[in-house]
Amino acid sequence: MAVVEVRDLRKRYGDIDAVAGVSFEIAAGEVYGLLGQNGAGKSTTVEILEGHRRATAGSVSVLGNDPAQSGREFRDRIGIVLQSSGVEQQLTIREALRFYGSCYRDPRPIDDVVEMVGLTEKIDARIGTLSGGQRRRIDLALGIIGRPELLFLDEPTTGFDPVARRESWKLVQRLCEGGTTVLLTTHYLDEAEHLADRVGVLAGGRLIAEGTPDELMAAAPDATISFELPAATSSDELRIPSTASIEAGVVRIETEFPTAVLAEITAAAVERGVELVGLSVRRPSLEDVFLQLGNDSGEAPG
Protein backbone atom coordinates (compact mmCIF):
# COMPACT_ATOMS: atom_id res chain seq x y z
CA MET A 1 0.00 0.00 0.00
CA ALA A 2 1.25 3.45 -0.81
CA VAL A 3 2.16 5.55 2.22
CA VAL A 4 1.78 8.74 0.26
CA GLU A 5 -0.57 9.25 -2.68
CA VAL A 6 -0.72 12.59 -4.42
CA ARG A 7 -3.15 13.11 -7.31
CA ASP A 8 -3.10 16.26 -9.41
CA LEU A 9 -2.16 18.45 -6.47
CA ARG A 10 -2.51 22.19 -6.96
CA LYS A 11 -1.73 25.11 -4.72
CA ARG A 12 -2.42 28.65 -5.82
CA TYR A 13 -1.12 31.79 -4.12
CA GLY A 14 -2.80 34.80 -5.66
CA ASP A 15 -2.16 34.48 -9.39
CA ILE A 16 0.72 32.06 -9.07
CA ASP A 17 0.43 28.29 -9.10
CA ALA A 18 3.12 27.26 -6.65
CA VAL A 19 2.14 23.66 -7.36
CA ALA A 20 0.46 23.11 -10.71
CA GLY A 21 -0.79 19.54 -10.92
CA VAL A 22 1.62 17.13 -9.26
CA SER A 23 1.02 13.38 -8.88
CA PHE A 24 3.24 10.78 -7.27
CA GLU A 25 3.20 7.86 -4.87
CA ILE A 26 5.58 6.68 -2.20
CA ALA A 27 5.60 3.03 -1.17
CA ALA A 28 6.19 1.83 2.37
CA GLY A 29 9.87 1.81 3.27
CA GLU A 30 10.82 3.85 0.26
CA VAL A 31 13.02 6.93 0.28
CA TYR A 32 11.52 9.36 -2.19
CA GLY A 33 13.49 12.43 -3.17
CA LEU A 34 11.80 15.59 -4.34
CA LEU A 35 14.44 17.49 -6.22
CA GLY A 36 14.18 21.03 -7.41
CA GLN A 37 15.50 24.52 -7.18
CA ASN A 38 14.11 27.13 -4.81
CA GLY A 39 10.62 28.08 -5.85
CA ALA A 40 10.06 24.81 -7.69
CA GLY A 41 7.21 23.90 -5.31
CA LYS A 42 8.99 21.38 -3.09
CA SER A 43 8.29 22.99 0.25
CA THR A 44 4.69 23.81 -0.62
CA THR A 45 4.07 20.22 -1.66
CA VAL A 46 5.65 18.86 1.49
CA GLU A 47 3.81 21.29 3.77
CA ILE A 48 0.51 20.18 2.29
CA LEU A 49 1.46 16.56 2.96
CA GLU A 50 2.42 17.48 6.53
CA GLY A 51 -0.94 19.16 7.13
CA HIS A 52 0.54 22.64 7.54
CA ARG A 53 -1.15 23.95 4.40
CA ARG A 54 -4.30 23.16 2.50
CA ALA A 55 -4.32 22.21 -1.14
CA THR A 56 -6.24 24.36 -3.61
CA ALA A 57 -7.21 21.29 -5.63
CA GLY A 58 -6.33 17.65 -6.07
CA SER A 59 -6.25 14.80 -3.58
CA VAL A 60 -3.65 13.86 -1.04
CA SER A 61 -3.50 10.77 1.13
CA VAL A 62 -0.80 10.30 3.74
CA LEU A 63 -0.81 7.08 5.80
CA GLY A 64 -4.43 6.70 4.69
CA ASN A 65 -5.41 10.15 6.02
CA ASP A 66 -6.18 13.52 4.55
CA PRO A 67 -3.49 15.55 6.31
CA ALA A 68 -5.59 18.75 6.23
CA GLN A 69 -8.28 17.01 8.30
CA SER A 70 -6.00 15.01 10.54
CA GLY A 71 -5.07 15.65 14.10
CA ARG A 72 -3.19 14.03 16.87
CA GLU A 73 -3.25 10.41 15.64
CA PHE A 74 -1.77 11.48 12.34
CA ARG A 75 0.96 13.64 13.82
CA ASP A 76 1.95 10.81 16.14
CA ARG A 77 2.85 8.72 13.08
CA ILE A 78 4.84 11.30 11.18
CA GLY A 79 8.09 13.06 11.91
CA ILE A 80 8.96 16.41 10.41
CA VAL A 81 12.38 17.93 9.99
CA LEU A 82 11.53 21.45 8.91
CA GLN A 83 13.85 23.69 7.00
CA SER A 84 13.28 26.83 9.02
CA SER A 85 12.30 25.81 12.49
CA GLY A 86 14.22 26.92 15.51
CA VAL A 87 14.55 25.13 18.83
CA GLU A 88 14.49 26.72 22.25
CA GLN A 89 18.10 27.80 22.69
CA GLN A 90 17.80 27.97 26.47
CA LEU A 91 17.23 24.21 26.72
CA THR A 92 19.79 21.45 26.71
CA ILE A 93 19.47 18.72 24.09
CA ARG A 94 18.25 16.31 26.75
CA GLU A 95 15.56 18.74 27.93
CA ALA A 96 14.36 19.55 24.42
CA LEU A 97 14.06 15.85 23.56
CA ARG A 98 12.27 15.21 26.82
CA PHE A 99 9.70 17.98 26.31
CA TYR A 100 9.07 17.26 22.64
CA GLY A 101 9.13 13.51 23.23
CA SER A 102 6.61 13.75 26.05
CA CYS A 103 3.68 14.37 23.71
CA TYR A 104 4.12 11.17 21.64
CA ARG A 105 2.55 7.87 22.55
CA ASP A 106 5.74 5.87 22.37
CA PRO A 107 8.81 8.12 22.24
CA ARG A 108 12.24 6.65 21.62
CA PRO A 109 14.57 6.72 24.63
CA ILE A 110 16.46 10.02 24.63
CA ASP A 111 19.87 8.35 24.87
CA ASP A 112 19.15 6.24 21.77
CA VAL A 113 18.09 9.23 19.73
CA VAL A 114 21.10 11.27 20.76
CA GLU A 115 23.39 8.40 19.85
CA MET A 116 21.73 7.97 16.47
CA VAL A 117 22.43 11.57 15.55
CA GLY A 118 25.88 11.56 17.10
CA LEU A 119 25.30 14.14 19.82
CA THR A 120 25.93 11.95 22.87
CA GLU A 121 28.78 14.10 24.11
CA LYS A 122 26.67 17.25 23.81
CA ILE A 123 23.54 15.92 25.47
CA ASP A 124 23.68 18.34 28.38
CA ALA A 125 24.85 21.33 26.38
CA ARG A 126 22.53 24.28 25.88
CA ILE A 127 21.30 24.30 22.30
CA GLY A 128 22.28 27.96 21.95
CA THR A 129 25.95 27.00 22.31
CA LEU A 130 25.95 24.47 19.45
CA SER A 131 27.14 24.90 15.88
CA GLY A 132 24.74 25.14 12.94
CA GLY A 133 25.45 21.57 11.87
CA GLN A 134 24.83 20.27 15.37
CA ARG A 135 21.53 22.12 15.48
CA ARG A 136 20.44 20.49 12.25
CA ARG A 137 21.19 17.16 13.90
CA ILE A 138 18.90 18.21 16.76
CA ASP A 139 16.26 18.83 14.10
CA LEU A 140 16.76 15.25 12.96
CA ALA A 141 16.64 14.01 16.54
CA LEU A 142 13.35 15.85 17.16
CA GLY A 143 12.01 14.46 13.89
CA ILE A 144 12.55 10.85 14.93
CA ILE A 145 11.84 11.02 18.67
CA GLY A 146 8.25 9.83 18.13
CA ARG A 147 9.19 6.71 16.08
CA PRO A 148 7.59 8.04 12.89
CA GLU A 149 6.34 5.70 10.15
CA LEU A 150 6.87 8.52 7.69
CA LEU A 151 9.63 11.06 8.03
CA PHE A 152 9.66 14.37 6.16
CA LEU A 153 13.16 15.66 5.62
CA ASP A 154 13.10 19.17 4.26
CA GLU A 155 16.59 19.95 2.97
CA PRO A 156 18.21 18.11 5.86
CA THR A 157 21.82 18.95 5.15
CA THR A 158 21.61 22.58 4.10
CA GLY A 159 24.49 24.32 5.82
CA PHE A 160 26.35 21.12 6.68
CA ASP A 161 30.05 20.64 6.15
CA PRO A 162 30.95 17.63 3.98
CA VAL A 163 31.71 15.38 6.95
CA ALA A 164 28.44 16.21 8.67
CA ARG A 165 26.57 15.57 5.43
CA ARG A 166 28.07 12.10 5.09
CA GLU A 167 27.16 11.40 8.70
CA SER A 168 23.57 12.49 8.33
CA TRP A 169 23.30 10.45 5.13
CA LYS A 170 24.38 7.44 7.12
CA LEU A 171 21.75 8.26 9.71
CA VAL A 172 19.00 8.51 7.11
CA GLN A 173 20.15 5.21 5.63
CA ARG A 174 20.04 3.56 9.05
CA LEU A 175 16.51 4.88 9.59
CA CYS A 176 15.41 3.48 6.27
CA GLU A 177 16.75 0.07 7.21
CA GLY A 178 14.33 0.26 10.13
CA GLY A 179 11.45 0.50 7.63
CA THR A 180 10.77 4.22 7.96
CA THR A 181 9.39 5.78 4.80
CA VAL A 182 11.13 9.02 3.97
CA LEU A 183 10.14 11.99 1.84
CA LEU A 184 13.26 14.00 1.25
CA THR A 185 13.46 17.39 -0.41
CA THR A 186 16.77 18.66 -1.52
CA HIS A 187 18.48 20.78 -4.08
CA TYR A 188 21.65 18.79 -3.68
CA LEU A 189 21.72 16.29 -6.49
CA ASP A 190 24.36 14.10 -4.96
CA GLU A 191 22.14 13.86 -1.90
CA ALA A 192 19.17 12.58 -3.92
CA GLU A 193 21.48 10.26 -5.86
CA HIS A 194 22.92 8.93 -2.63
CA LEU A 195 19.80 8.54 -0.51
CA ALA A 196 16.72 8.24 -2.65
CA ASP A 197 15.27 5.05 -4.10
CA ARG A 198 13.23 7.18 -6.46
CA VAL A 199 13.47 10.81 -7.40
CA GLY A 200 10.86 13.25 -8.66
CA VAL A 201 12.17 16.39 -10.26
CA LEU A 202 10.04 19.49 -9.67
CA ALA A 203 10.31 22.64 -11.73
CA GLY A 204 7.77 25.45 -11.95
CA GLY A 205 5.31 23.55 -9.77
CA ARG A 206 5.29 20.50 -12.06
CA LEU A 207 6.86 17.10 -11.78
CA ILE A 208 9.00 17.09 -14.90
CA ALA A 209 10.68 13.73 -14.40
CA GLU A 210 10.46 10.76 -12.09
CA GLY A 211 12.41 7.56 -11.70
CA THR A 212 15.28 5.88 -9.92
CA PRO A 213 18.49 7.91 -9.98
CA ASP A 214 19.82 5.44 -12.60
CA GLU A 215 16.76 5.80 -14.80
CA LEU A 216 17.04 9.55 -14.71
CA MET A 217 20.65 9.24 -15.72
CA ALA A 218 19.71 6.96 -18.59
CA ALA A 219 17.33 9.61 -19.88
CA ALA A 220 20.19 11.99 -19.60
CA PRO A 221 22.13 13.91 -22.16
CA ASP A 222 24.77 12.00 -24.07
CA ALA A 223 28.19 11.12 -22.77
CA THR A 224 30.94 13.58 -23.54
CA ILE A 225 34.30 12.53 -25.00
CA SER A 226 37.02 15.12 -24.83
CA PHE A 227 40.75 15.35 -25.60
CA GLU A 228 43.29 17.80 -26.91
CA LEU A 229 43.64 17.83 -30.68
CA PRO A 230 47.24 16.73 -31.37
CA ALA A 231 49.39 19.31 -33.16
CA ALA A 232 49.57 19.06 -36.94
CA THR A 233 46.62 16.68 -37.07
CA SER A 234 43.35 17.53 -38.74
CA SER A 235 40.02 16.43 -37.39
CA ASP A 236 39.41 14.43 -40.59
CA GLU A 237 42.56 12.43 -40.06
CA LEU A 238 41.26 11.31 -36.66
CA ARG A 239 37.83 10.57 -38.14
CA ILE A 240 36.22 12.97 -35.64
CA PRO A 241 32.47 13.22 -36.29
CA SER A 242 31.19 16.50 -37.70
CA THR A 243 29.01 17.08 -34.60
CA ALA A 244 32.14 17.65 -32.52
CA SER A 245 33.11 21.07 -31.25
CA ILE A 246 36.72 22.21 -31.19
CA GLU A 247 37.56 25.11 -28.93
CA ALA A 248 41.06 26.27 -28.02
CA GLY A 249 42.44 22.98 -29.32
CA VAL A 250 40.11 20.87 -27.14
CA VAL A 251 37.77 18.49 -28.93
CA ARG A 252 34.37 17.71 -27.37
CA ILE A 253 32.04 15.09 -28.76
CA GLU A 254 28.60 14.46 -27.29
CA THR A 255 27.38 11.05 -28.28
CA GLU A 256 24.86 8.40 -27.42
CA PHE A 257 27.39 5.72 -28.39
CA PRO A 258 30.67 6.64 -26.71
CA THR A 259 32.16 3.16 -27.22
CA ALA A 260 31.82 3.17 -31.01
CA VAL A 261 32.99 6.76 -31.43
CA LEU A 262 35.92 6.18 -29.16
CA ALA A 263 36.91 3.04 -31.06
CA GLU A 264 37.00 4.96 -34.38
CA ILE A 265 39.02 7.84 -33.02
CA THR A 266 41.50 5.86 -30.99
CA ALA A 267 42.06 3.48 -33.90
CA ALA A 268 42.82 6.47 -36.17
CA ALA A 269 45.15 7.95 -33.57
CA VAL A 270 47.01 4.68 -33.12
CA GLU A 271 47.41 4.31 -36.96
CA ARG A 272 49.07 7.75 -37.04
CA GLY A 273 51.08 7.15 -33.92
CA VAL A 274 49.70 10.17 -32.05
CA GLU A 275 48.74 10.29 -28.40
CA LEU A 276 45.43 11.89 -27.37
CA VAL A 277 46.33 14.06 -24.38
CA GLY A 278 43.63 14.51 -21.74
CA LEU A 279 41.36 11.85 -23.22
CA SER A 280 38.27 11.43 -21.06
CA VAL A 281 34.74 10.11 -21.28
CA ARG A 282 32.38 11.75 -18.87
CA ARG A 283 29.04 10.29 -17.91
CA PRO A 284 26.50 13.01 -17.12
CA SER A 285 25.87 13.53 -13.44
CA LEU A 286 22.38 13.92 -12.07
CA GLU A 287 23.24 17.60 -11.97
CA ASP A 288 23.46 17.71 -15.74
CA VAL A 289 20.17 15.87 -16.02
CA PHE A 290 18.58 18.22 -13.60
CA LEU A 291 19.80 21.35 -15.30
CA GLN A 292 18.68 20.11 -18.67
CA LEU A 293 15.24 19.12 -17.37
CA GLY A 294 14.93 22.44 -15.59
CA ASN A 295 15.62 24.23 -18.85
CA ASP A 296 13.02 22.16 -20.66
CA SER A 297 10.38 22.57 -17.96
CA GLY A 298 6.88 23.15 -19.20
CA GLU A 299 7.58 21.03 -22.26
CA ALA A 300 7.74 17.26 -22.34
CA PRO A 301 7.32 15.64 -18.93
CA GLY A 302 9.73 12.73 -18.58
Binding site: R72, E73, L82, G86, V87, Y100, G146
Partner: peptide, 20 residues
Protein backbone atom coordinates in the same frame (compact mmCIF):
# COMPACT_ATOMS: atom_id res chain seq x y z
CA UNK B 1 9.65 35.44 18.94
CA UNK B 2 8.91 31.74 19.11
CA UNK B 3 6.46 32.05 16.24
CA UNK B 4 9.02 33.73 13.99
CA UNK B 5 11.73 31.28 15.02
CA UNK B 6 9.45 28.49 13.81
CA UNK B 7 9.19 27.02 17.30
CA UNK B 8 5.38 27.27 17.34
CA UNK B 9 5.29 25.52 13.99
CA UNK B 10 7.52 22.78 15.36
CA UNK B 11 5.11 22.21 18.23
CA UNK B 12 2.23 22.21 15.77
CA UNK B 13 3.98 19.30 14.02
CA UNK B 14 3.85 17.17 17.15
CA UNK B 15 0.77 15.34 18.46
CA UNK B 16 0.29 17.82 21.31
CA UNK B 17 -3.29 19.13 21.34
CA UNK B 18 -3.20 22.89 20.66
CA UNK B 19 -5.33 23.56 23.75
CA UNK B 20 -2.74 21.82 25.93
Amino acid sequence: IRRDDGILKRWRSTPIPPSV
